[in-house]
Design a protein around this nucleic acid. Sequence first.
DNA 1: TTACGGCCTGAGAGCGCTCCAACAAGGGTA
DNA 2: TACCCTTGTTGGAGCGCTCTCAGGCCGTAA
Lengths: 337, 337
Amino acid sequence: MTTRERPTLEAVARRAGVSRATVSRVVNGSTTVAAAIREAVNRAVEELGYVPNQAARSLVTRQTDSIALILPETANRVFSDDLFFPAIIRGVGSELEAADKQLVLMMAGSAAGYHRVERYAVAGHVDGVMFASIHGADPLPGLLARRGIPVICSGRPMLADPPVPYVDVDHAGGVAAALQHLITSGRRRIATIAGPQDMVAGLERLTGYRETLGAAGLPSLVAAGDFTRDSGVTAMRALLDQDPDLDAVFAASDLMAHGALQALRDAGRQVPEDVAVIGFDDFEISRYSDPPLTTVRQPIAEAGRVMARQLLRLIAGDPEIDPAIILPTELIIRASA
Amino acid sequence: MTTRERPTLEAVARRAGVSRATVSRVVNGSTTVAAAIREAVNRAVEELGYVPNQAARSLVTRQTDSIALILPETANRVFSDDLFFPAIIRGVGSELEAADKQLVLMMAGSAAGYHRVERYAVAGHVDGVMFASIHGADPLPGLLARRGIPVICSGRPMLADPPVPYVDVDHAGGVAAALQHLITSGRRRIATIAGPQDMVAGLERLTGYRETLGAAGLPSLVAAGDFTRDSGVTAMRALLDQDPDLDAVFAASDLMAHGALQALRDAGRQVPEDVAVIGFDDFEISRYSDPPLTTVRQPIAEAGRVMARQLLRLIAGDPEIDPAIILPTELIIRASA
DNA sequence: TTACGGCCTGAGAGCGCTCCAACAAGGGTA
DNA sequence: TACCCTTGTTGGAGCGCTCTCAGGCCGTAA
């Protein structure tokens, strides 16, 4: 392995016969350098294979051109079966790539990991921090914001002190559209499989369900889930126990809807003839389930993209950041309802 | 926003009434500091909320405690439908988390992104680099290695100059097991949907197919795919055109196998009665397809974990790094074959 | 009492870069 | 010819930290 000594600015300057400052200007694209000298410097850079030392540079500029994305889960949970995080990463990644920033991924499932994230951000390793999907009243976003670090959240944070700008989707609207579709097509005993109630997404979808059904004068029937497929199976069984005659189910996630599909099949119910099923997410796999899943599409990757864009503006010092951006959801009708 | 001035070592030293060097010693856990002084320093650190500046630190130590994972695809392709990258990230992430290193994710789909990755690594922004799934004869791993940067690959790199250590799975063994299962159960016209031939995974699975069938004296029938579901649909149709009487298909990825399942259904074939289908990957979704997919399980997350572990050893200067680690694959028999 | 280690602590020299103040050339104007 | 810009370049300070080395203090032995 050729652990060749890395050339410094100094070395380039010597070779090009100019000063360090001039080389720095050329490297950083300043225009006030005579063409001939710029040429000479560029040649020296090329010949030596010079690449600026990032640590030295950010020591003085106080920025690193990298951005952290915090996934408040353990690595094992994050990428198990769920396509939410991959989609967020996809959106964030494409946006940062375009802005020539680096993405630092941090999985902070444990309390220790949590503290690590805090130290990492405060140590100035990144220029800003994004949070993907927050559990409960998480103090970390506020904590970092108070430390002067640009922060933005995906999903409205429950704790708003200090308020941290966020990007979210229109949960209530999506749920209302889904339920309206069920009601319009004659369903009257509409149950729901709710998401975790320590997350805003779970909370708002349940609230939306209650309100829409309440307004329509229909009874509620709720089972708790945690967005996973298995919890969907369990919840669906419980619902069937409680009301064998239910004719529709709204699941707060596609994965839970798939679980419900399976539980319904096991219980001998036909979908959508006996029971209509609607999910929430519109993951790719929902196009291929049996039957294909009717679901509320939420633009996850787009949320990631917007979140990244907002953070970049925040870092650039733009004073006019929307404190909240809500992206629209859309009901995608397939065969299951 | 409280952009409070970040305290420096100097400030802590003043407050604790000691020198900078002593504070540094305490912060870095040196034992040669008197207990009373250590106490005082720790108190000062606490009171000031001191966190060492990472840039300054790595300027002198020449290490950053972060590691890059390069995904040689565009962000949009990486997380589309595929569960390969999420699984790799999961493995790598859990291992790095345990080692208290940070994961920097880089998507290098374009040529520009490519150059960016190189500069980034050479700039000393990371202590080492991992490559996930390499296309063709990619020069980048070798290039970085020659620059003295610790590098490791997931999947055997086609270009081995200089040789870069890698972690891969036993493609040939998995394919052989799959085909043996088909042959044993009486299948005689076994087609394959091959993966992209610019990737070792695609190449080796096709080679395995040819060799096993050749040894059994059975004819080959090959259609090309690119690991995606859509390519599986197309390839399956082509195979059916070429040999309407084929009785089995081995797809080089689960996604292609799902596509094949769909195309077979559309063509009125029963799986597994008319045509047996076997995939490769064992993604979660394959447990839930119709029928559940028989497939070759490859331990992707484990490969990520091993890769991270190897890189960490490489960075630590361990001279005895296995140039290649091959993880076992396993045939998972479900209903489709 | 003096000499001599052993232990801690402090001073100071960088790490490689940016950026500011200062200065060297030209070229135009009075 | 003297003077003032403008344009381009340089030296040097300083970012916050680590680490080497010299030196202070103390106990022990001679």
